[in-house]
Design a protein around this nucleic acid. Structure first.
Lengths: 214, 214
DNA sequence: GTCTATAACCTGATAGAC
DNA sequence: GTCTATCAGGTTATAGAC
């Protein structure tokens, strides 16, 4: 069992070229690749090349393409979820809570445009097979809670919370997921540039808030 | 040149197994396949099998996988565009025009859920390379016109028409594109069933109309 | 028009050297 | 840990029979 020898605590540094870093770089490259192609069409060769290693190295860290995909998906969504908890939305009145959540979701999508594509591809290609429903329930649950609080307090009109939550997430993600089809609407401008991003954020929040308020 | 012999006009019927029908069946099967996998990951074998022919037959009708994809995409979007013109939205006041357009888009998406996935995959995978921008401009142009008319007449509040148009299309497509990720929100119910579809349509129209009205 | 057979290539995954 | 080399299987596309 020479494996034990490799993990001696006395020399935790210098495991050749740093195991943890390589693993993360592989997940970064996998995220970029899977976000464009989806699981089936992704090429292990491309992920390896972008990381600067060979295919065989990937299989040292992950058992299969499928496992790499699942690890990437989990890391990607766990980050998203940290948001909802950090925001402390329960302490805010429903109106302010929804504005804050919308702003955060839009910022999150703009900082990591992969996330929208990955979820979209997961739904379309894999029929949600690898989608962690628990994570989805937390995201939508947060929105639904705010909407129900708002209806009770009279701040929001009477609406069906689940359908409205879906429409809210849709509004927050479409601009980023479909950006390559939308770029013709703003010739010469960058959809993720400061100017367009700022006005899109404002317009989206205004539309949703006007849509739910009483 | 025995080819000429095969095309004699005296017997225009019975070209073995009807050329036009096979072509359309191939486009149907291609639509179903491309809508799930996208261009790269689609398998010609699968399209052939679903049509009941062999791969070689596809290459008799289409020069390449890419050409089949483009033909599928065009047929798919031209159908969408026929809608906007048939609706005669210019004759209606902006409020009624937008409601009618929303209802039509949502119905179109529910009758052919492929359309949302195909456009999404085209954006994400191919970066809009094959997306006919002309068609996109017409769809978004129609919405933008209604919004501008509404702002002038005072029916709608002051908003940025392009961003709002994008958000409207996003709202109309997300439920259908991401349905496989959303199904956990309604356990035991079919997202495309009559009940959920009807309430989703109503809620979406209400949200958007409340969002744009003055 | 549609088939069978095959060419030429690409991809996931493994074995074994270093 | 990372590499080279390789296998087995699958893919697009074409050639030629019927």
């Amino acid at each position: 069992m020479p494996v034990i020898n490799k993990q001696k605590t006395t020399k935790s540094t210098n495991q050749s070229r740093n195991s943890e870093a390589t693993r993360n770089q592989l997940l970064d490259a996998a995220e970029a690749e899977f976000a464009v192609t989806g699981l089936i069409a992704a090429r292990m060769e491309a992920i390896a090349a972008q990381t600067g290693v060979t295919k065989a190295t990937i299989y040292y860290y992950f058992q299969s393409k499928e496992e790499l995909y699942q690890a990437m998906l989990e890391r990607c969504l766990v980050g998203m979820l940290g948001l909802a908890e950090q925001l402390q939305l329960d302490c805010l009145p429903p109106d302010a809570a929804l504005v804050k959540l919308l702003a955060t979701m839009l910022q999150c999508m703009s900082e990591n445009p992969h996330v929208g594509s990955i979820l979209c591809l997961e739904a379309v290609q894999n029929k949600g097979k690898y989608y962690p429903k628990q994570l989805g329930n937390i995201l939508y649950g947060t929105i639904i809670e705010i909407l129900e609080r708002g209806m009770l307090s009279g701040a929001f009109r009477q609406l069906e919370p689940r359908h409205t939550a879906v429409n809210i997430v849709g509004t927050c993600s479409f601009y980023f997921t479909a950006q390559e089809n939308l770029k013709y609407l703003w010739p010469g401008k960058r959809l993720l540039g400061k100017e367009l991003l700022q006005s899109h954020t404002q317009e989206s929040i205004d539309l949703i808030m006007a849509g739910v308020r009483n």
